[in-house]
Amino acid sequence: MGLPPVHFFSHGSTMMLGEESKSATYWKQCGDEALAHNIKGVVMMGAHWDARGTNRIDVATNPDPQKSPVAYVHPSKYVDYKLVPDVSTGNRIVGMLNAAGLNARTNETFDWIHDTYLILIRMFPGRCPPTTIVSMNARFDPHLHARVGSVVAQLREENYLIIGTGGAVHNLYRNHWWQMLRHTDNFAMPVPPEAAMMEFRQSFEDVFLRNCKPGMRKGTLTSGVTRLMKHPQFRDAHGTDDHFMAACFVAGVIDASEGIADDGAVLGAEDWELVNMCNSQFTVGKWVSQAA
């Protein structure tokens, strides 16, 4: 049985749940592959939940979470989808993080937000697998989030699928909202994306694809991803830091997983939304190549 790959997904706007896209097709493909390999569960870090305090990370252990409403998406797309929280794995992850020196706590009241369940619905439309959601930390230290990823990386050996869901280029202040608000068309491109968005998008791709290949020194991907926060166009591409932390988390998982980077990274799909939002979908590792 092969070990699971690791995914960094750009979830985009809420309308990515309601509208068909290349990204949605790829998410479903990845979900089908995961089910075919009988994953034990999913561990996710999103972009819309952060814990306050130095080194504090919360882990969702609400046994019956509700869903926050999704704007511009018909309720039939998500209201009846049954969430399946993995409380026992959540408690275990808290122990793992605390043992690593982090201030991890369970959160028994957290209700899930579209950044995570949008991806789950697209990947697993038939039934949600047991899922654990790990929060960010509100200080948005990229190295801290990579460290969280390095701690949970060992769960891959037990056939857990690890996903970070944020954004490659995700700046709500720079998006063009008129076409979506007036015509419910999130994919309209009346003008090209701004040069800064294109530049950062290419740098993001370069970091993932060039630092995941045979012979790379361990830690190279984490160094590259965290260094992107000093990119001249980072603040153009990310008006806030929250949607970038999942990429740091994924980099930590990959660098702590023996051999996975040797299989390379692929840009599985990509959609531009609202002119300036680039939803890039990356996968590192392959099921087949890691078969025993």
Rank of each mutant, 00 (worst) to 15 (best):
M1E: 15
P4A: 00
P5E: 04
F9K: 02
F9L: 14
S10P: 01
H11E: 03
M16Y: 04
L17V: 05
G18S: 13
S21D: 14
S21Y: 10
K28D: 08
K28I: 07
Q29M: 12
D32Q: 15
H37P: 11
G41F: 00
V42P: 00
V43Y: 02
D50M: 09
R52L: 10
R56T: 11
I57W: 02
D58V: 00
T61F: 03
T61S: 04
T61I: 08
P63W: 10
Y72W: 09
K77E: 10
S88T: 15
N91P: 07
R92Q: 14
I93C: 06
A100H: 11
L102N: 12
N107R: 06
N107Q: 08
W112D: 03
D115W: 04
T116Q: 10
I121S: 00
P125K: 09
N137S: 05
P142C: 09
V148S: 08
G149W: 06
L155D: 08
I163K: 00
G166L: 02
A168Y: 00
L172C: 10
H183G: 10
M189K: 13
P190G: 07
M197H: 05
M198W: 06
R201W: 06
Q202I: 12
S203N: 06
D206R: 14
N211Q: 08
N211L: 07
K213V: 11
R217I: 08
L221E: 03
V225C: 07
V225T: 02
Q233F: 06
R235Q: 13
D236Y: 12
G239C: 12
A246K: 00
A246G: 07
C248Q: 02
F249Y: 15
A251L: 07
A251K: 02
G252P: 04
I254K: 05
E258A: 15
G259R: 15
G259P: 14
G259C: 15
D262M: 09
C278H: 04
N279V: 09
S280T: 13
F282P: 01
V284G: 03
V284N: 04
G285D: 03
K286G: 14
